Simulated scan of single mutants.
Amino acid sequence: MAVFTPIKLEDIAQWIDQDFNIGQASEIRGIHGGIENSNFFLDTTKDGKKQEYVLTIFERLTAQQLPFYLELMRHLANKGVPVPKPIENKQGDILFTLKGKPAAIVTKLPGLSRLQPESNHCALVGEMLAKMHLAGKDFSKYQENLRSLDWWQKTIPSVLPHLNTSQKELITHELKTQEEFFSSGTYDVLPQGASHCDLFRDNVLFDPKGSDVSQDQLGGFFDFYFAGTDKWLFDIAVTANDWCLADNKQDLEPARLDAFMKAYQSVRPLTKEEQASWPLMLRAAALRFWVSRLWDFYLPRDAQMLTPHDPTHFERILLSRRSL
């Protein structure tokens, strides 16, 4: 999350009051972090009570692409998966235009992030990720993961001039390996469906039950704006590469990974093809985020409150996964 398009309360107060049934806008605050969209906490007052929402202005996604994400969130919320639910205006629309750009308002989930997760947090995430995958099986819309192989092939040439010799060799060799994997018969039969594709620690909230973090309950998943129709195993690998990191920030920590995978498979066991593809998919997930962080770091856009992520983090993770 970041702020590329600044918004003040006076810019939206009349719009909120006239077009929605969520009360009067009382405060709007830019959200720090992330790199894709302009995000704000939006507070309203209705019948004397404060209500909290998240307003997003989309900087790269088009009005043609956005219905997939918003309708997926609504579909999952209606299935009981704890995700932000898009807010309709008085005409029943969930996609709007603000400052000439697509925009949406969604409910704000309760809870807080656990950026240093324990095994119990990994288990809660794994279980709900599997439930989310199954809940999305009957979601009718299709949209490919826009940050998958085609995007890597287009983006890597633009970042190569910024890399040293060993980095160039690593990224080009891994891309070739993934091209072969993606064209294989094994990859073709992997189960797929609506996937989050970006379920990092800062995209999950937990509801604390006192000071003992082992009693935390899952609050919900958010930030679905990298979602797509993809192999579920890719979604699992993206999540594991972040949630199950060892203290050295590159290897997988066995206890966290075991808790995560057992919880996922208690809901949806992996197929034999998924089990065989796990090492390569972990590498695919690492490559995806190394490429995107290189792109954001070396080819940045202007934004308020924008802090690019360190691309070498996923370079180290990719090297670790290649050693499995």
Score class of each variant (00 low, 15 high):
K176V: 14
L324Y: 06
L66R: 04
L112F: 07
L270M: 14
E36H: 05
S323A: 14
G193M: 15
T239F: 04
C244M: 05
K137A: 14
R321I: 04
L245C: 04
F297I: 01
P254G: 10
A276K: 12
G100D: 12
Q18D: 15
K154A: 15
E71F: 04
D302I: 03
A285L: 03
G100C: 09
D207Q: 13
G92Q: 04
Q250L: 08
F234S: 04
T177R: 10
E174Y: 07
Q192F: 08
A194V: 06
Q18S: 15
Q153L: 12
K137I: 15
E169L: 08
A286V: 12
F181E: 01
D258V: 06
Y225S: 07
V291P: 05
V291K: 02
Q265E: 14
P254Y: 07
F20T: 01
P161C: 10
Q192R: 13
K231T: 04
L233R: 08
Q143D: 09
S320W: 03
F297D: 09
A285K: 02
T5L: 07
A104V: 01
L218R: 00
L129M: 13
R268T: 08
T107R: 00
N37A: 02
L109W: 00
Q18R: 14
F314G: 13
Q24D: 14
S320A: 12
V213F: 02
S158T: 13
K50R: 11
T56M: 01
E144A: 11
E59D: 05
H313E: 15
H75Y: 08
T312A: 12
E52S: 10
S148Q: 09
I28S: 00
G30Y: 02
L61G: 03
L282K: 11
L306R: 10
E127L: 10
T186D: 15
W232K: 01
A286K: 04
D230E: 15
P269V: 09
D11Y: 01
L72C: 10
P110I: 04
N21V: 03
L42Y: 00
R321H: 09
Q275H: 05
D230Y: 04
E144N: 11
A135R: 00
S214N: 14
F206K: 00
L134H: 08
W15M: 13
C244D: 09
H32D: 15
Y264M: 06
T239V: 07
K231A: 03
V81K: 01
L95P: 02
A194I: 03
I31R: 01
C244W: 01
G30Q: 05
S211K: 14
Q65N: 07
R316S: 12
D247P: 11
D251S: 14
L218V: 06
H32S: 06
V81W: 00
R301V: 15
G220M: 02
K209E: 14
L233M: 13
M261R: 06
W243C: 14
E27C: 09
M128T: 09
R74L: 03
I317T: 11
A123S: 13
T44I: 10
L72A: 09
V83G: 02
P110C: 08
E88M: 03
L319A: 12
S266E: 13
P308I: 12
K79A: 07
A63E: 09
L160G: 12
D258Q: 10
R316N: 15
T239D: 06
E144V: 14
A284R: 03
V54N: 02
I105S: 00
L257S: 02
E118K: 08
L170T: 08
L9R: 04
G219Y: 05
D302K: 10
